[in-house]
């Protein structure tokens, strides 16, 4: 579904502060794969997702989405096939607009946006169904501005919005990181449910090792812009957090230094 070939991304290129954010990344994700991405701060996880989404243009290499070279496509063109959620609950929804208006905009992903009324009876019925599926009671509040929702509710709505138009790829960048533990757990369950029922190819960054092991069909670990571990489903099922940390230490030659990852549970 998505293929990365020899991807390089530099920040502050040709200056003394040059950083290699992505260092020869090669990744081939099959249709229906749910890949969890883990790594220490500055490992290049977010940059990887941004490169795939077209938010950041890569300096070298080729990105293929569903067999098509999208390396030079701008973000808004790739977004027709890619749903994406950021860790900031404010980022993935428009707070001044109502829930149904937000859903209507997401519903039109990849289609021509013309002069038809955005919120119609037929659409509202559909929105109610998909929102009811996440089980937060939002289906009765469709006319409420999104700004009045809690962080968890906004991320749940963002999940629905990212997936309502059946994207080819779903990118989740620590989408539960800014939530309290209870809401985070809820959102992860909703994520699992949506990804399963819609059979979405998914790439999810998490800072939670347990989450990374528990969810998904494949786990990759990044360090200093490289993929240093790539664990398949069978192997992942037997994996424990201490083993994962040990694997990291052995492969990278450094100890895992992100407290957030180590302390998360």
């Amino acid at each position: 579904m998505i293929k990365l070939n020899n991807i390089y991304k530099y920040f502050f290129a040709d200056t003394p502060n040059e950083v290699v954010a992505l260092n020869n990344i090669n990744l081939n994700i099959k249709e229906g794969d749910f890949v969890t991405v883990i790594g220490s701060n500055g490992a290049g996880k977010s940059t990887l997702l941004k490169a795939i989404a077209g938010v950041e243009m890569v300096d070298q290499g080729i990105i293929e989405l569903a067999g098509k070279d999208v390396t030079s496509q701008p973000e808004h063109k790739r977004a027709r096939e890619i749903g994406r959620i950021d860790q900031d609950p404010m980022a993935s929804t428009a707070s001044d607009m109502t829930i149904e208006e937000n859903l209507a905009m997401a519903y039109m992903r990849g289609r021509r946006r013309g002069l038809l009324r955005a919120v119609t009876g037929g659409r509202t019925k559909r929105f109610k169904e998909v929102v009811a599926d996440v089980g937060l009671g939002l289906e009765n509040r469709l006319q409420v501005p999104v700004g009045t929702l809690s962080g968890g509710q906004r991320q749940a709505l963002a999940l629905v919005m990212a997936t309502i138009a059946q994207p080819k790829l779903l990118l989740l960048d620590e989408h539960t990181a800014a939530l309290d533990p209870k809401a985070a757990k809820q959102i992860m369950e909703i994520t699992r449910k949506i990804v399963d029922t819609k059979k979405l190819t998914t790439l999810m960054i998490t800072h939670n090792m347990e989450q990374a092991i528990k969810f998904g069909t494949r786990l990759i670990m990044m360090h200093r812009g490289e993929i240093i571990l790539d664990i398949n489903q069978q192997e992942k099922e037997k994996l424990t957090v201490p083993q994962l940390i040990e694997k990291f230490t052995n492969t990278s030659g450094t100890t895992f230094d992100d407290d957030r990852v180590l302390l998360a549970n």
């Binding site: 701008p74 808004h76 063109k77 977004a79 994406r84 428009a94 905009m105």
Partner: peptide, 9 residues
């Protein structure tokens, strides 16, 4: 950012 991520130029 949000509306661009929904495929709008």
């Amino acid at each position: 950012k949000m509306i661009r991520a929904l495929g709008v130029n």
